[in-house]
Design a protein around this nucleic acid. Structure first.
Lengths: 196, 196
DNA sequence: CCTTGTCCCGACCGATCGTTCGGTTACTCT
DNA sequence: AGAGTAACCGAACGATCGGTCGGGACAAGG
């Protein structure tokens, strides 16, 4: 066996607590005192596990970005018709967004005040750009309507998907990832799919 | 004549500066020092015009909320078929959101740390509820597809519309309010409109 | 037993937070 | 010119910020 240690904090378990507080109060609105209360350890003890507040943010957004970029490496996102690859990516985005909900939530709210935040924004733009190219390819193949500009459509679709973090809560008997992904796909492609 | 005063700050002109900084750095990430630098007056002078930081936030979100609720009082939002009223509201939401862009942007980012923020969130929920009722009526009249739950569809449509504040910038020769409203309406109702 | 290293703590650091205060400048009105 | 006042400022307030420090509790290995 590898890990059957003690009942104590690790950087990962501490991160899950921190991200939750960050999402409730906002990153700038959260003090290390808030984190220590939520974690149940003293403020100084936090620095035994992580370098500081900004490292917690970096770990969180990294996890979210890894999940999103991982989608683009999957087979169904790389081969096939552009429209089908696009639909696959859209559905997987919803699933990843829900699976890593607090981390993606935090990622989508960074403003760019610190170096870590600016790095996160840059990687987000890179991901958006990759998906926009996919939509452009689908439009070129004639499977997506052409009367709405590609860049504008991409932004609006991202807006719809990303807004899930504002209301989806996994408590109890709510809808699961698949149901939300289906609804999003129906709304997005019912409006995007070429009628002719 | 009423106002041909001096070249000095009023609560309104100060507000426009403050809202811009709030949106760049986030409300919690903005200090009164930041505001004084951006406004070009000393920190203490700000308190000659407004009671404090939170009043600036309250004035800003009030302006945004007034614009949004004003839509529901307009004639085209009150009379006619539900589907047509809904489309009118969606288009007007885009227009108001762009006309009052910085104020609505700030409204959509409040987290609920202070009393003012919680009040803003409550009024937002009230507005969302009013629009959701409109969509429900349109579904009951058969003009909107019924295979996607009303509440879910409302949230996704709001997500798409509200995301405009994340990328729309009025600089130079960009697209105007009407063009964005048309694109949103096409995407939203191309997916919402009943095919049968 | 004693050492070693993990985990944690209270006390404290300089800096910055939103806000207050006493006083000065500059414009308006008579 | 003089009075009144709106606009503004530098200095300082107590509180809180993110982060540091020296040391204590506790388990594992000898």
């Amino acid at each position: 066996m590898t890990t059957a240690k003690r009942d104590t904090y690790t950087p990962e378990t501490l991160l899950s607590v921190a991200v939750q507080v960050f999402n409730e109060r906002g990153y700038d609105g959260t003090s290390m005192e808030h984190l220590s209360k939520a974690a149940g350890i003293s403020k100084s003890s936090i620095y035994h596990h992580v370098a500081g507040k900004e490292e917690l943010l970096r770990r969180a957004v990294s996890r979210a970005l890894d999940g999103l970029f991982g989608i683009l490496d999957e087979e169904h996102a790389r081969v096939g018709h552009a429209a089908e690859r696009l639909e696959y990516v859209v559905r997987r985005m919803v699933e990843v967004l829900i699976a890593e909900l607090p981390y993606v939530t935090l990622l989508l709210r960074v403003r760019g005040n610190t170096g870590t935040e600016r790095w996160a924004l840059e990687r987000r733009r890179e991901f958006d750009h990759r998906v926009a190219e996919l939509l452009k390819a689908a439009a070129a193949e004639g499977d997506v309507r052409g009367d709405v500009e590609v860049r504008l459509a991409t932004r609006l679709v991202f807006g719809m998907i990303n807004s899930i973090v504002e209301w989806y809560r996994p408590d109890g008997r709510g809808m699961n990832e698949r149901e939300v992904a289906d609804a999003v796909a129906q709304l997005v492609f019912g409006g995007l799919r070429n009628a002719g």
